[in-house]
């Protein structure tokens, strides 16, 4: 399982990178989102306990590690905020340079 997970995270990261490096800015944004998913998955998987039951006080058995979960919760929220901001920047670029092509974004335009 861990090997599949490792390969999947690597694959998600690689795909995200490829998307990030594309000319079309929307694809770059998609790439960013995929990369943040991959990283969240990674963080979740390095928890100390491989849980069988949810991290609830009443649950019986090996609970999943609550700490990385709580941290990822924060990470997901922050990356959503950051992502929205990136989209706003893309819009500003589109409005100023009249393009959605990152290669066309050159020099300072007003």
């Amino acid at each position: 399982m861990e090997i599949i997970k490792a390969i999947s995270i690597g694959a998600l990261f690689g795909i995200g990178l490829y998307q990030l490096l594309r000319r079309n800015v929307i694809r770059s944004a998609i790439g960013l989102s995929i990369i943040s998913n991959a990283i969240n998955l990674y963080l979740l998987s390095v928890g100390a306990y491989d849980g069988v039951v949810e991290a609830y006080a009443k649950a019986v058995g090996q609970r999943s590690d609550a700490l990385p979960q709580a941290l990822i919760l924060t990470a997901i929220v922050i990356s959503l905020g950051g992502f929205a901001f990136v989209l706003a920047l893309l819009y500003v670029i589109a409005a100023r340079y009249r393009t959605g092509d990152s290669d066309e974004v050159k020099g300072l335009s007003h």
Binding site: E2, A6, I9, G10, A11, G14, L17, Y42, S45
Partner: peptide
């Protein structure tokens, strides 16, 4: 991707 896979393997 390969680097991250390697990192994950090591970390796990």
């Amino acid at each position: 991707g390969a680097l991250v896979t390697a990192l994950c393997l090591y970390a796990f």
